[in-house]
Amino acid sequence: MVERRPLFSLFCHIILILGILSIAFPVWVALVATTHENTAFATGTPLWFGDLGFSVFSDLLSNQSTFNNSQLPITQMLFNSMVMALCITVGKLTISIMSAYAVVFFRFPGRMFAFWIIFFTLMLPVEVRIIPTFEVITNLNMLNSFSGLTIPLIASATATFLFRQFFLTVPKELFEAARIDGAGPIRFFIDILLPLSRTNIAALFVITFIYGWNQYLWPLLITTDVQYYTIVMGIKQMLGVVDGLIEWNKIMATTIIAMLPPVIVVIAMQKAFVKGLVDSEK
């Protein structure tokens, strides 16, 4: 809108404030809940801070607390989630950037066939192929292991496709100039292509890290050992109470902790992002 009408901007602000409230309110409730005794939730949801302060957090992080007498080690779960998200992210980026490089810059028999096969897997996300994938992982004895958690999620058509589109915009003269300058395919990839794709890598890193961190269904299926629980699925385990009170204050604290790493990644990467966008090099 080019026009500036006071009523209209008031309207816009109201919409924006409503949006922010609807996003921020659950976070607020979670934050407030961490400061109350568990008994407070029987009478309703508290909307202002209680008197526990950070003690729930410190109990959780020192692994002293139990959920209805079962041990759910928060730090271990955080570590597992971190390993899983990072492995998926690094694996995805590595594999997709290399396959996109092969598909775009080289001519070999079956090149387009390979590309279409990769493209085709776009139609088969984890949820669709979950039973055969589970079967394969079981037969490979990869249940309850980090390799089982990460490897099936590494292959990615989306990332390959994104890099392919970017590589297609790189002038082929650059490749030829590098060849004349005595840089082989690997040198060209490391010296020229990777630095050029910095911003794309940063963007994909953010997206994939959050994707990996938020994985729920897959870890739920293949882990039965607490040692390999990830934090996102761990929260669900905390809710599974047979009899007794659900410990909302601890659950909310765990949720807040689980939320932090993606937020940090987004904020940290945003800088690289914006920098890359501002002095875009092409």
Binding site: E173, A177, A178, I192, L196
Partner: peptide
């Protein structure tokens, strides 16, 4: 070789 679009390494 000198290319038409120069093909300088942008970074």
């Amino acid at each position: 070789m000198v290319f038409q679009n120069y093909a300088l390494y942008p970074h």
